[in-house]
Simulated scan of single mutants.
Amino acid sequence: MQTRLVAYEALNAVQTQQVGAIEVHPEQLPFCGDMYCALNTLLVNPSPGIKGFALLADDVPVAFLLLKCPPCLPHWADAHSATLHALQVDRSQQGRGFGKACLQALPAAALQAWPQIKALELSVDTHNVAAMGLYLGLGWVDRGEAYKGRVGYERRLSRGLEPQ
């Protein structure tokens, strides 16, 4: 199966509808939100500091994520980074490596969108064991800082980028 991470604006009409239908398991909603909120963030007040990406598996969207860069960074992020938000793998597609595929393709996509960024950052709930394991296993580094988030305490993870 071929996968590729593509910018939301490059999707065709059918793929755009398919992205809108992505759903996660109810217990994952506090961590990643839902597609309605993610697409609302992307589309209602468009900004050059927010980009959406869909992971296509054989040209069918199976996952979605948002990236933010200045001036849209959250308070905890470094000014020279882009931050990952709303990573959602469709519940029917989970466990097939699509989250990992998103994260592996993310550095190139981020640098193509914003060549000036130096790192990727994310914030993850300390109780989200599966996500922590995935991120750390792919080379993200726990910065050792925690803060009170929406659900519980969040850890900041980062990954440096090499210019293309």
Results as ranks from 00 to 15, higher is better:
M1W: 01
M1T: 02
T3A: 11
R4H: 11
L5W: 02
L5R: 00
A7E: 14
Y8E: 08
Y8A: 09
L11H: 10
N12Q: 09
A13C: 03
V14M: 02
Q15C: 09
Q15G: 10
Q17Y: 02
G20H: 01
A21C: 07
E23L: 11
E27C: 06
L29R: 13
C37I: 14
C37S: 13
L39T: 00
N40T: 10
T41N: 12
T41C: 12
V44K: 13
V44E: 10
P46I: 03
S47W: 05
S47D: 14
G49N: 09
G49I: 09
I50N: 00
F53N: 06
A54H: 05
L55W: 03
L55K: 01
A57D: 10
A57I: 04
D59S: 13
V62W: 03
A63P: 04
A63Y: 02
L66Q: 08
P74G: 11
H75S: 12
H75R: 11
D78N: 10
A79Y: 02
S81Y: 06
T83R: 02
T83K: 01
L84W: 05
L84F: 00
H85F: 12
H85K: 04
A86F: 04
V89Y: 03
D90W: 04
D90G: 12
R91F: 00
S92Q: 10
S92F: 09
Q93P: 04
Q94L: 11
G95N: 11
G95T: 07
K100Y: 02
K100G: 04
A101T: 07
L103C: 05
Q104V: 11
A105W: 01
L106S: 01
P107C: 07
P107R: 04
P107E: 05
A109C: 11
A109S: 12
A110D: 07
L111P: 01
Q112K: 05
P115N: 07
P115S: 04
P115I: 09
Q116F: 13
Q116L: 13
I117D: 03
K118A: 15
L120K: 07
E121S: 08
E121M: 14
L122T: 13
V124S: 03
V124K: 01
V124C: 11
D125S: 14
T126F: 08
T126Y: 06
H127T: 15
H127D: 15
V129G: 02
V129Q: 14
M132V: 14
L134W: 05
Y135E: 05
L136K: 11
G137K: 04
G137R: 03
L138E: 12
G139N: 05
V141T: 09
D142K: 03
D142P: 05
R143D: 14
E145K: 13
E145I: 15
E145C: 08
A146I: 10
A146Q: 15
Y147F: 15
K148M: 14
G149E: 09
G152D: 15
Y153T: 11
L157M: 08
S158C: 15
R159M: 14
R159P: 01
L161Y: 08
